[in-house]
Structures are given as C-alpha cells and as structure tokens.
Design a protein around this nucleic acid. Structure first.
Lengths: 125, 125, 125, 125
DNA sequence: GTGGTCTAGACCACT
DNA sequence: GTGGTCTAGACCACC
C-alpha cells in the first residue's frame, strides 16, 4: 500500500523490546540477549538494535554494565510507566480507528464489553 | 520480530475498501473507482484488487453491473453489518494487545475513558 | 477440459436447427435463412452448415426447392417426431447425470416436481 | 448459435470436483489430488484449479491443511447439500430444455418414465 | 512436496 | 472503457 510502513525501524524495535519487558518475557533484573543475537533474530542491522537499546537505557527500562551486558531494570515503577505508555498508544490507535468507523466512545465501550465477554468463556477477570 | 503475521494483500484491500464504504467515503449507491484505477492508486496488480472486490460483492457491500461498473449497496443493513465486523476486528486486536501488556478488561475501559477525555478537547474536562 | 467437446460441429448444428423448427422459431412452411447467413451467424464454415441442412432434408424436417430456397415442412407428424427425439436425448442425458449423483428414478421425479413448482410461480400447466 | 453461454472454466471445475465428492469417487475424509496434479490432468492453469478449490473450501466440501494437502469433509450433511444442489441445477437445465421444446411438466415426467424403463434392462419391462 | 499469494499480460463480451 | 477470465511464472511458509 504505502511504501513507508508507519514507524522507523528502531522505533518498532523499541516498542517490541518494551513489550518483552512489560509482559515479563524479559524478567526484571535478567540479562537480555546480545545486540548481535537480537539483530540476527530480527533480521536488521546491529546498529539499529543498538539505537533501540540506547533508548531503553535512556528511559531506564534497561541498564548497561560495561562488561557484564545489559539488564532489565528491577524498578517496577519504571516498568509500570512503560506499560502505561504502550497501553496509551494502543488505546489511541484503537479510538482513532473506531472514530474512522463513525463510532464514538460509548460504542467503543459497548463493543469492548461484548467482545470481552465473548473472548473469555470462563471469567477470570 | 516475526516475519509473516501480516494479512495477505487482498485481505487488506477488502478491509480498506470496506472502510471506504462504512465511513461514507464511498456513498451508498455511488459508483466506485474502476478496478484498474484502484490498482494503480494502491500500486498493486489489478487482479489483486479484483479478488478483493469479488469478496465485497460476495458480502453484498457492492454489486457489479457487467459493463457499467461497480456500485455500493443501498442496503444500510449490510453496511451496518460491515461496520460491526470491522469494529469487532479492531476491538479484538486491541484487547489482545492489552492482554499482552498484562492488562485486563477493566484496565482497558479505564484507559479508554482517560484517553477519550484527553483526546476530546471540547467540554467537560 | 477435454479437447473434443462431445459432438462434431455439424451434429450440434442439426440439433440447433431442429430446435428452431420444433420450438416454432422457424414456423412450418416458412423459408429458412440461407446457408451463407447461417454460417456467418454461427461462425462456422458454410460446408458445415450445408451438411447439417442436408441431414434436416433427409429426416424430412426441411425440403429444398431448387430455386426458391429451403423450407420448413408443414407435416406436423415429422415435427412431432423430431420433438420426441430431442426430448429423448435431453431426458437420457438428464437421467445419466442423476445416476452419476447416486440418485434414482424416483428421486428424479421428486426433484422434477419440486423444481417445476418452484419455477412456475403461477401455474399455467 | 450463441457464442458464449457457457460457464467459466473454474465454475465447471467446481461442478466437476463436487461430482467427484458427491459420487464418492473422492471419499469423505480422503486426501484429494494436489492443485498441480489436478491442473495437469485437466490441462488448465493451476491458478484456475486453485480458484475452484477455494470455492469448495468456502462451501465446506473440503478443508485444507496448509502443508499436508486438501481433504474431503466427513460431514455428510454438507455432501448431501451439495448433491441436492447439483441435482437441482441439472433438473433446472432439463426443465428449461424441455420447455424450449414446447413440452410441459407432465410431458417431462411421461418421457422420464418411458426412458427409465427403456434404459433399465433388468426387471419389469 | 503442499497450498497460498502476487504479478504481468492477454483476451473476451458488452456498451 | 468496464468487469471477468485465464495463463504463465514467480515467490513464500510450512513440513
């Protein structure tokens, strides 16, 4: 469709890596994969991964220890903030798409409730 | 991250064209652009557009008159059904992404409310 | 599918022309189109049309008058016989296709009744 | 006579393949030949076969397992529905041809009975 | 090897 | 010019 698929690559990686941390895939305090491994796995240039990880460092989601590697923060407040940030992005995108369908906030909440009930057959809410 | 979780091109086109109809960009009863024009504009092969439009015909969103072109249905019920369908898809994707962040339905509704108030500058803030 | 689409061309023409006579499209006693016109209209070689028309002459459905042209018979018995012949061919083909579906004579009659009622909304039987 | 009243190739293939399933040539639950084999055997392009088989999938007559191949449904209700559909098509075509001969429903049943007796050599003749 | 997708380009019928 | 069909040939993901 459009040649420029939304975000620059490194920003997508920031979001992906943040997801890994926020969802616990990368546990707090754990060592994350090397730049080289991440780059290979994502089929991108290591420099791109490096830039994304620098951003994670800047926000405090990760900390780099010269020799030992890079580790996920143990500060839950930072992780929670990142979670909120990602949730806000997803929500804004969702609201925008609903508006484009001519649906307002109340419609969104109604459908959200309906789908939630439909998708969770047993309600561990 | 993952190389191929995206939808095939023709399915994306089905969604795009449905959006055009549901949002009223293509008004009920109006003639939609020709297969060739749509293909050129989307930079895809006319056959791919054709496949997508056949799907719209199948769902009743459009009807084709062999030589005259293809027209949006005037049946609002069909359009409403398509709108619900697209809304459901968007909502499911949203809920899934929220779940991956470790957030549940109530979190989603809370953030939805907060973002709605933030995004609508008019009125009771 | 198969390169040899069932019948030789001239036999198909015999069936087509017989249809025209039996259905009354070519009325009893009327002059039928010239070989050249028929050939052009059917996009086949005039010789092929000639062969088919000779067959019609042989069965008595048409008669040739040297200078005036070729005329449909006025003998209704001959026309009726041709009608029976075409009907028999169609019926045999129908029964064969039903058998291939694993359906027997009674099934055929049942479906025939059902479809007849479905196709004739007002019953001018 | 008329140049193009025939069905498109892929629709003929849909009918042919349906016949194979309905008649049991392709047994319920069995693997059907590959797209490429069917295309070669029918001397058509694989894409044309693909289109026909997609239609079978859509109607539920077959299900495809991405890499393993395509299989006939084990749901007899679906097969019975397809049989009825094919029988209805054949019957409608038959009734239409009889009508073009100037024959009505009763004529059709009479000839049907006569031909049935003629074609079945065993028993009460 | 399987099915699925996409492209490029052709031809047809209809108006 | 419209939509529809068909072909030839390519690439992909999966096993």
């Amino acid at each position: 469709m459009q040649l420029d698929e939304s975000q620059p690559l490194w920003r997508q990686l920031v979001a992906d890596f943040s997801h890994c941390i926020v969802s616990g895939t990368w546990a707090p305090g754990s060592k994350i994969p090397s730049v080289r491994d991440l780059a290979m796995h994502a089929s991108v240039n290591p420099n791109t991964v490096q830039r994304a990880l620098s951003e994670l460092d800047r926000t405090g989601l990760t900390t780099t220890q010269r020799t030992a590697g890079r580790f996920v923060t143990t500060d839950n407040a930072v992780i929670d903030a990142a979670r909120n940030d990602l949730a806000t992005q997803a929500t804004d995108a969702y609201l925008t798409s609903m508006r484009r369908l001519g649906l307002n906030h109340q419609h969104a909440v109604d459908i959200l409730d309906a789908r939630w009930r439909a998708l969770t057959n047993e309600g561990e809410d």
